[in-house]
Amino acid sequence: MDWLDRTAKLRQWSRSGTRAPHKPLLFLYALGRFRQDADGELQYSAVEEDLKRLLTEYGPPNRTTPAYPFHHLASDGVWEVRTDRGPGSPGSGVRELRAAGAAGRLAPELRAALLREPSLLGRMARVLLDLHFPPSLHGELCEAVGLEPELELEFGPAGAERLSAVRRQRDRRMRELVLTAYEYQCAFCGYDGRIGAVPVGLEAAHVRWWAFGGPDDVDNGLCLCSLHHKLFDKGVLGIGDGHRVLVSQHFVGRSPAAREHVIALAGRSLIGPQPGARPVAATHLDWHTRQVFHGSPRPATAA
């Protein structure tokens, strides 16, 4: 059985680029727990809070529940659920799962495959990360679910060919094109650090995530410093009308550094791109606002 292919093709609810990472997050969590205890089960009532935190931090802005993936992931053949009454899930409702003492774990065939081939776990996790989350979040997400932050993925020629239908190739030129368009300075704060001629701490951020159909084009990119790239991908920062910076009201920072480097950005105009370069397309900005930015924006900060 091709577990990488099955991992890449998890069935998910989808409409107009809507993010639905519920199953991938549960799957990553289950792989992390398997790595710690290959024989253990995940009692829904015991892991519900962990899964809620993952969905809150890495899921879409709209409210959601971990009961949905706990029940539905079994349909993909990688997960099984049992209750006090025997095999099978009682349903996708929180009360049903709690009342029935529902517990889940990776499917028996998958557990056997992971024990035979330990490196398979890291390759499956990498597929989930690549297909559902931006690179800026991979390390911390691995740590959150109990996986190694640096996972090796060695498909080999045959494996790469099997997954070619679902894994697009990135355009390696995008970083240079975006940084040039924004004249090697952060579009939010203007940071432009270098060591000699080499820029440091500057990254090309996708506005609409590559994992969700975002193209490797200048009009889907921003040059951002490492801090603001991470905050942009976590939904703390966004871009509103007139290409002005949005800062989520959910963000709390009392230190002078937090006020200066984050809160004070509210309402500022983006820096760049230079004349002749394409600004971020409205369709990508709309996707980020709906699918990534959390909550309502703070009012503009007085100059």
Rank of each mutant, 00 (worst) to 15 (best):
186 C>T: 05
242 G>T: 12
188 F>K: 01
197 A>F: 00
162 R>A: 15
251 F>I: 03
240 G>D: 07
135 P>C: 10
231 L>W: 11
164 S>M: 08
197 A>L: 13
134 P>F: 10
186 C>V: 09
189 C>M: 09
191 Y>W: 04
161 E>S: 12
256 P>L: 08
178 V>A: 10
127 V>W: 08
198 V>D: 09
191 Y>A: 13
167 R>D: 02
122 G>V: 08
177 L>R: 15
119 S>D: 11
141 L>Q: 04
138 H>E: 02
118 P>E: 03
244 R>K: 14
247 V>P: 06
145 V>I: 09
128 L>D: 06
154 E>C: 05
232 F>A: 06
245 V>H: 06
157 P>R: 07
245 V>L: 13
212 F>S: 04
175 R>A: 14
159 G>R: 07
200 V>H: 07
248 S>L: 11
227 L>D: 05
158 A>F: 02
161 E>D: 11
256 P>V: 03
153 L>H: 15
218 V>W: 01
209 W>K: 01
163 L>P: 07
157 P>H: 03
112 A>L: 14
114 L>F: 09
127 V>M: 00
201 G>C: 08
209 W>R: 05
154 E>Y: 00
141 L>M: 10
149 P>M: 14
229 H>Y: 08
155 F>T: 13
233 D>W: 05
215 P>Q: 08
245 V>R: 03
161 E>P: 02
191 Y>T: 13
194 R>Q: 11
188 F>Y: 15
200 V>I: 13
222 L>V: 13
189 C>G: 06
253 G>L: 02
187 A>D: 02
131 L>I: 00
